[in-house]
Design a protein around this nucleic acid. Structure first.
Lengths: 192, 192
DNA sequence: TGGATAAGTCAGCGAGTGCTTACATTGGTC
DNA sequence: GACCAATGTAAGCACTCGCTGACTTATCCA
């Protein structure tokens, strides 16, 4: 017997909504696996759409990566306040990393994507240099760019230690013990 | 007309030599691309042997990765000397990174490999935890493991800033400006 | 000098990749 | 109500991947 599904209601068509769904799924995938290991098929499945739509809306996989990495870091709030508060903010950024539910971390995505060619350029030009420039402008004085680079390195390094190397002594449960030493390191660079 | 190449001399067979050649090529490939993006076919080509030999000698790609990562970090020389000398050694490790000709960097290989499953375990158990344990034993006192983790993070983070994010202000040409601030950061953690 | 065995070669399987092309269906407009 | 652009689907191309099993060839020992 042949059945006809009369209950089927096609989901409404909405280009910008599916575009957004693709972006959300891509953020997760790129953070978890990096650019190269990310799969457009998996992103599409997670977004609940067809693979071809990724290419329609973002041209290519690297185009999608560019859109994901674009303007995803805003240092404004971090650099507002007294110098002591800025240090506190930077420490907080590190220590809050890896809290569950946080499935998009542009720095982590950058670390995991910066090895191979097409993504490397995006990471450098859209994430690394802008962050260093913003930080350096805030720091000012001699060696501002070097200091800014080192601060960024410490933040990124924290990600590496906690989430890539999986060091036990750096997990969130150890935040209390980590906090003073991390603060000391950042302060040493900023106030050097 | 049919020619017979009477000049052909087959290269001598030497299992341990080709095994070593594979290891050397693998070190380069894993450092440059990380575990997932590394290609066994490329490694074999670089080693001048057939792909099948990788599986014969190392069981699998992850087996090769284990052998590459095994016992590749010796902190002994770094931790010998006065505390001041130890700081100097750690700074030197960072600043010498990315010098041409250095095509094997286990930390960089770890960073680029620690994202996905089979390699992640190897990175954690064969690189992260041993290094932290050794460093912590040297540091001693309160929070030794946390301090050790942060030191490792700073070293790894430097790699990220310089070679993955490609930050301009952190290239080797800026070593002189970087040195004092990097020293300050490491000292702040060690002497905290 | 033969034969056993270690060492290396070769072709290919099954699966996964990014991307494209041709097609189906929807929703809004004249 | 008919048309049509916008949206979504399905199938497949050309490629790379790790790995394997059957094969050839060199080496060494009895």
């Amino acid at each position: 017997m042949t059945e006809i599904d009369t209950t089927h209601v096609p989901k409404p068509r909405n280009a910008s909504a599916t575009r957004d769904a693709i972006l959300v799924a891509a953020r997760k995938e790129f953070t978890k696996l990096g650019f190269e290991n990310a799969s457009t098929r998996r992103i599409a499945e997670d977004a609940g759409c067809n693979v071809a739509l990724i290419n329609r809306y973002f041209e290519s996989k690297i185009g999608l990566f560019e859109d994901v990495m674009d303007a995803c870091i805003d240092l404004g709030p971090v650099l507002a306040g007294t110098p002591d508060e800025v240090v506190l903010n930077l420490v907080e950024i590190c220590l809050s990393k890896g809290e569950a539910a946080l499935d998009f971390d542009p720095v982590l995505a950058a670390i995991r994507s910066g090895g191979t060619e097409p993504a490397k350029d995006v990471v450098q030009s859209q994430l690394g240099e802008p962050m260093v420039a913003t930080l350096a402008a805030y720091i000012g004085g001699d060696d501002a760019h070097q200091k800014a680079g080192l601060i960024l390195s410490i933040v990124a390094g924290f990600d590496v230690g906690r989430r890539i190397m999986g060091v036990e002594a750096m997990q969130a449960s150890q935040n209390a013990a980590l906090q003073p030493h991390l603060t000391a390191a950042i302060r040493a660079v900023l106030e050097g």
